[in-house]
Write a protein that binds this DNA or RNA. Structure first.
Length: 593
RNA sequence: GGAGCUGUGGUGUAGAGGCCUAACAUGCCUGCCUGUCACGCAGGAGAUCGCGAGUUCGAAUCUCGUCAGCUCCGCCA
């Protein structure tokens, strides 16, 4: 690049620049060699522009262009010319112009890439991840990464305007019980001791409130050593914040404003506020999910009472033993084949449903193998409850409430997908509030926090913490977008007594509580303001904005489902010497050599 | 920990016991071509069908195992 300097990104140029001498840099997207005339589409992150090489313009440049191949890195000096009317390419942003090149520099050659650098690709993800640097060259991925930047910029600007301070918290911190598995980091100078990478900056941001910073935020990496999913990576990014002297309402209102602002700023999308709010109970009852997708209807209906009195032993038995019988009306699905219904039954079984009863509503009335067990008025109750019309297909699950909700909740979404009821361009937000504080974990045989152990119970419910913990509501809230949990938070406990009570409820001994969270309990005694906060999953937010199915498409360097990085080959083995320094021995059982 | 799907030239697919000496498209290489934009035309190279066992006279094709990627359950806010 000696003696020349880039003058423009390629799509900054238009007919307005005709006649100008420009210097452009970028990659060879495609080359079209006509023998006596060569076209090269030059690509930079902004887009494409057509370079024209002709012996009439410069023989040396033309000779070089003959040797150029895909993905070569070029610097081209040339003049912007208007294309003749019939050669204008409406598909290109710069399609009205082209660059007649008078000097070409090949800054670097490139091997033939293993896949096309183009918008649509259905290349095996294996290969995309191995050659991530090439995958990231694709316009689609470039847009995702740029969108991600715009989102963080918008959120940062918004929070700055609202008086938040961006403050960093440690990456090397202590392991705590509760919540996800920690990623551990051995301490060389403290043999046998480990740091944990943060699952979230939870404790630190609360301490910052104790310190009087009042409003904190951070766009921060978090780590959880759990199994991966399309929307779950071991390291992910949160837009994390905490505020002093706030109530639930304050947080919800401010966040609605932030979301609307961010969507507008980053993507030009208008978001309607306020968002509908559901209590946890209502969400579970109506949608069978604590992250309801509001882009379509098909709500769950409860027929437990009808079923309890019926002669259908399967339903009546479940109802009698504290279970539920609920159903969903698959509108217009009466034409489903036996196989389709079987497939849906198998689908429901994944979520623990032992069966999927159904009634087909025909022009001649309801038809089903189970109808004979129901009395006339019971059938009418069901049909009325569903507002069933000819053409409908009614599904039922009878089981304990959690299985009914899970299976029907999932079935509802599956049916909507199958029937294409989901408009991909719609963004439906919701708040889910009044989560239970704790739930009983059968495996651990103790109460566990649904949100986390620092979530404040409703003032009125504190009295039930000793007697009926399941009844205690938390001052917690989740934000849901299109059936995806986007974020969550709560008003926190800010006094030592309640916090100790919470630890005790979770089965933590006084000693253990002091050992793990003593600093927190102590801090609470030095003038802690009431405070609360929320954290958004940035990856999921950007994924939904970009209309992608996985957060891997909005993370530059994601990991595979088995938590490996196919480009760097992390995690990798380390030398014996490194292990010795860290005072670590590998048990041979599962470790591969 | 479990269930399912996928794996065939560089890439995307076809082939589903013998017609395979593995096909098609694209990419790649060579030549021709001064208005293309997925340029075109002609020719060429390129695959022990993820890996390992087994069944069979015969396996890309069937069986078992294994590895990798993906989706989901469990797990995880």
């Amino acid at each position: 690049m000696q003696g020349i300097k880039r003058t423009h990104m390629v799509t900054e140029l238009s007919s307005a620049n005709v006649g100008e001498r420009v210097v452009l840099t970028g990659w060879v997207n495609t080359r079209r060699d006509h023998g006596g005339l060569i076209f090269v589409d030059l690509r930079d992150r902004s887009g494409l522009i057509q370079l024209v090489f002709s012996p009439d313009a410069d023989t040396e440049a033309f000779a070089k262009a003959e040797k150029v191949r895909s993905e070569y890195v070029l610097a081209a000096v040339g003049e912007i010319r208007r294309r003749s009317e019939e050669t204008i390419n409406p598909k290109l942003k710069t399609g009205e112009i082209e660059v007649t090149v008078c000097e070409l520099r090949v800054l670097n050659k490139a091997k033939t890439p293993p896949f096309y650098i183009e918008e649509d690709t259905d290349v095996d993800e294996n290969i995309r991840l191995r050659y991530r640097y090439l995958d990231l060259r694709r316009p689609d991925m470039q847009e995702n990464i740029m969108l991600r930047y715009k989102v963080t910029r918008a959120a940062r600007n918004f929070l700055d305007r609202k008086g938040f301070l961006e403050i960093e918290t440690p990456m090397l911190t202590g392991s705590t019980p509760e919540g996800a598995r920690d990623y551990l980091v051995p301490s060389r100078v403290n043999p046998g001791k480990f740091y944990a990478l943060p699952q979230s900056p939870q404790l630190f941001k609360q301490i910052l409130m104790v310190s009087g910073f009042d409003r904190y935020f951070q766009i921060v990496r978090c780590f959880r050593d759990e199994d991966l999913r399309a929307d779950r990576q071991p390291e992910f990014t949160q837009i994390d914040m905490e505020m002093s002297f706030v109530e639930v309402e304050d947080v919800l209102n401010l966040m609605e404003e932030m979301i609307a602002d961010t969507f507008k700023e980053a993507a030009g999308i208008d978001i309607e506020t306020p968002f509908p709010r559901f209590t946890y109970k209502e969400a579970m009852d109506r949608f069978g999910s604590d992250k309801p997708d509001l882009r379509f209807g098909m709500e769950l209906k409860d027929f437990t009472e009808t079923a309890a009195n019926s002669d259908f032993k399967v339903f009546a038995g479940v109802a009698a033993s504290g279970g539920q019988v609920k159903g969903i009306n698959a509108k217009g699905c009466a034409d489903f084949s036996r196989k389709e219904i079987d497939d849906l039954t198998n689908f429901a079984a994944i979520y623990g449903a032992k069966g999927l009863a159904y009634i087909v509503v025909t022009d001649e009335g309801p038809k089903s193998p189970i109808l004979k067990f129901f009395k006339e008025e019971e059938i009418k109750a069901i049909m009325d409850g569903f507002e069933a019309e000819p053409g409908d297909l009614l599904f039922f699950v009878a089981d304990k409430p959690s299985i009914v909700a899970n299976s029907l909740g999932a079935l509802r979404v599956e049916l909507a997908r199958k029937k294409k009821l989901i408009d991909p361009d719609v963004f439906k937000f919701a708040w889910v509030v009044e989560f239970p504080l704790v739930e009983y974990d059968d495996e651990e045989r103790r109460w566990v926090a649904i949100h986390h152990p620092f979530t404040s119970p409703f003032e009125d419910d504190i009295q039930f913490m000793d007697t009926e913990p399941a009844k205690v509501r938390a001052r917690a809230y989740d934000i849901v977008l299109n059936g995806v949990e986007l974020g969550g938070g709560s008003i926190r406990i800010h006094n030592r007594e309640v916090q100790e009570k919470m630890f005790a409820l979770l089965g933590m001994s006084r000693e253990e509580a002091v050992e793990k969270f003593g600093f927190m309990l102590e801090a609470f005694e030095y003038g802690t303001p009431p405070h609360g906060g929320i954290a958004f999953g940035l990856d999921r937010l950007v994924m939904l904005m970009a209309q992608k199915d996985t957060i891997r498409d909005v993370i530059p360097f994601p990991k595979t489902q088995s938590a490996t990085d196919l480009m760097t080959h992390a995690p990798s083995e380390v030398t014996l010497r490194q292990l010795q320094e860290l005072h670590i021995k590998i048990s041979t059982a599962k470790a591969k050599k």
